Amino acid sequence: MVGQEKAKQACFKGFGNKFFNSDRSSCIHKLKLTITEEIDIDASYVSFLIDAAIKRKVQHLDLHWCGVSKFFTKPLKVYNSETLVDLKLSEVLLDDAQIVYLPCLKTMHLEDNWYPNEATFEKLVSSCPVLEELNLIIHEEDIKAFRVHSRSLKKLNLVRSYIHFISSVLAVVIDAPLLCCLSIYDYASESYIVNNLESISKLDISLVFEMKLIRYFIENSAILKRLTLRLVGNSARDNYTLKELLRIPRGSTNCEVVIL
């Protein structure tokens, strides 16, 4: 088994060294790396591959560290790319890079990653000046409060499932003036705050979470145009939920509530 693992590592590195040879000058349009336990490549070598792709002006980068116990322990140069437009990171330990700037990034997908502190996530998002879409799937061991600050963000998809920190206050703060599409699947967070929505925004919200958070959006969204709710449960519970929704005073007289 040990011999087979070493052979796989050698094969992977041989291909990587040849394909990412520094003598090559051609650009890389898209790179997808899925690191599994079968390969078990150390983080430093993966960093080498990403650095090489950044130098060759990669535009789409997808990195998935699948079920491997070794994670990145230092900032990646992917945090400073002038060509990336689409970035996907899954199951990666993200360090707190001192300088973060992704001037062309428009779409970012972050799934089950680990963040050393709240500032790391906030810095990564706010340092993408043209970011339009953020897909965020939060791991149960992630930090308790997430703050999404972006002057350009238009679409936010957030998934946060049940976690073990049941006694802790789990908060999400959204500060995105141009936001027009918000989708939330959340049974864990206890507090949502949405700030600084511009009056010209047309906000379409889809929610799957507790009634008190639905009440928050209905009562406090003065410019809300459409609210989509997906009911899960038996018919008696659905009828009760519908009655509760009808009793909630709406902050927006033009709000359309759609029940799925």
Rank of each mutant, 00 (worst) to 15 (best):
Met1His: 08
Gly3Pro: 02
Glu5Pro: 00
Ala7Leu: 13
Cys11His: 13
Phe12Thr: 01
Phe12Pro: 01
Gly14Met: 03
Gly16Ser: 14
Lys18Gln: 13
Arg24Ile: 11
Ser25Tyr: 09
Ile28Ala: 11
Lys30Asn: 09
Leu31Arg: 01
Asp42Thr: 02
Ser44Phe: 14
Asp51Tyr: 06
Lys55Arg: 14
Gln59Tyr: 08
His60Phe: 10
His60Ala: 06
Thr73Glu: 14
Pro75Cys: 09
Pro75Glu: 09
Asn80Asp: 10
Leu84Tyr: 02
Leu84Phe: 04
Leu87Glu: 01
Lys88Ser: 07
Ile99Trp: 08
Val100Asn: 08
Pro103Ile: 08
Lys106Cys: 04
His109Cys: 08
Asp112Met: 12
Tyr115Ala: 01
Tyr115Val: 00
Ala119Val: 13
Thr120Trp: 04
Phe121Ile: 06
Glu122Pro: 00
Val125Lys: 06
Glu132Trp: 09
Lys144Arg: 12
Leu158Gly: 04
Val159Ala: 09
Val159Cys: 13
Val159Ile: 15
Ile163Cys: 15
Ala171Asn: 04
Ala171Thr: 11
Val173Gly: 05
Ile174Gly: 02
Ile174Asp: 04
Pro177Asp: 05
Leu178Asp: 09
Ser189Ile: 02
Glu190Ile: 03
Ser191Gly: 03
Ser199Val: 11
Ser199Tyr: 07
Leu203Ile: 15
Asp204His: 12
Ile205Asn: 01
Val208Leu: 12
Lys212Pro: 03
Ile214Lys: 08
Tyr216Met: 14
Lys225Thr: 07
Thr228Ile: 15
Arg230Val: 13
Leu231Trp: 07
Asn234Glu: 14
Ser235Gly: 01
Asn239Tyr: 08
Tyr240Glu: 10
Tyr240Ala: 08
Thr241Arg: 09
Lys243Trp: 00
Ile248Phe: 04
Ile248Pro: 05
